[in-house]
């Protein structure tokens, strides 16, 4: 029994790693295509049909490029930083139920690595640790622009973590559990039982915080766009940079799963249609990340902190209080 469980878990981990590493690559393809179409361009067209093999070409390039460690960096930290980003992104995925459980060859599979009873806490915590990737990478790079970017990343981090935690508190109070599977069961009664209807404010706040969490465009402050420098990743090359990249995209997918499961009913009653529904919701949230990148400008770090501390945090607190009163 123990051995079987062990093997099953290992297989699940490998499958999730492979699928989401590949998805990160394909995600870049979609990002380029969608952004291009929205800006009246064509995007990648030359490598393979519709430019699809561009992903493979980029992968080969990333894997074979020389791994440069500049002389004055703090070597060990510089080397470990990208690993932190990628590893924490994938570790967070352990508590996410990607699909309803299904039976294959008479063996029941639960597509979740570990259904721990503190799932959401674990996910938010691990995603929070992910900040150490950019932060340490930027600080170890011996490059002032990387350092600036890392500092900005830390400032953003402090601001949005508050919103993430507070906004999700109200749904947690309603469900009374921290496990994402329990969240899903709570909403399995069809569209009307989705938490988004009873907690629309928390939904919007969490969604906004998700943009800061993944560092996507309205809050893409970790890159020094105004200095035309990529920020903490400036000194990185080859696969080390690629790890940052995979971490970022995997994070986008995982946070899309989390939003869909917490607020939009997840996979519903667990039927095949429900599973498709979950994937559809995730696809929409991923698309929305790309959509906003084409449409919206970045805010300044001080504006983001203003938004988080002076606007969103009071709203989140009021939301919790009201939820508490209603539940009493």
């Amino acid at each position: 029994m123990e051995i079987a469980y062990f093997i099953e878990t290992i297989i699940k981990i490998v499958v999730i790693l492979l699928i989401f590493s590949a998805l990160a690559g394909i995600g870049t393809y979609f990002e380029r295509k969608v952004l291009a179409f929205m800006q009246r361009r064509l995007g990648p067209v030359n490598v393979g049909p519709f430019g699809l093999l561009q992903v493979a070409a980029d992968g080969i390039k990333l894997f074979t490029k020389e791994d440069i460690i500049p002389t004055s960096v703090v070597g060990r930290i510089f080397k470990i930083a990208p690993v932190i980003t990628a590893a924490t992104a994938f570790m967070a995925a352990a508590a996410i139920p990607f699909l309803p459980s299904f039976t294959i060859f008479g063996y029941e599979v639960h597509p979740i690595v570990a259904d721990i009873n503190i799932g959401i806490l674990y996910i938010l915590g691990i995603m929070g640790v992910g900040l150490y990737g950019p932060l340490l990478g930027g600080m170890a790079s011996a490059n002032k622009f990387s350092l600036l970017s890392a500092a900005r990343g830390a400032a953003v981090f402090i601001s949005y973590e508050v919103i993430t935690g507070l906004s999700i508190l109200a749904p947690i109070m309603m469900v009374g559990s921290l496990s994402l599977i329990d969240f899903n069961q709570y909403q399995s009664g069809g569209i009307t039982s989705w938490i988004v209807w009873s907690q629309p404010v928390a939904f919007i706040l969490f969604w906004i915080a998700a943009f800061a969490e993944t560092g996507r465009t309205p809050f893409h402050l970790i890159a020094n766009d105004h200095e035309i420098i990529d920020g903490f990743g400036t000194e990185y090359s080859g696969m080390r940079w690629g790890l940052f990249f995979i971490g970022e995209y995997a994070n986008m997918f995982f946070i899309s799963f989390v939003i869909s499961i917490i607020f939009l009913g997840g996979y519903g009653d667990g039927s095949f249609l429900g599973a498709l529904g979950l994937l559809g919701k995730v696809a929409f949230f991923f698309f929305f990340f790309l959509w906003t990148r084409a449409a919206w400008p970045d805010v300044r770090p001080d504006q983001l902190m203003w938004l988080c501390w002076k606007v969103l945090m009071p709203i989140a607190v009021i939301n919790i209080v009201i939820t508490g009163i209603v539940m009493m």
Binding site: R41, T292, A294
Partner: peptide, 15 residues
């Protein structure tokens, strides 16, 4: 959001 979506649907590519 609507403006970029409209351009995507129109598919009026200038490349």
């Amino acid at each position: 959001l609507w403006v970029v979506m409209r351009e995507m649907i129109r598919f009026d590519i200038h490349t």
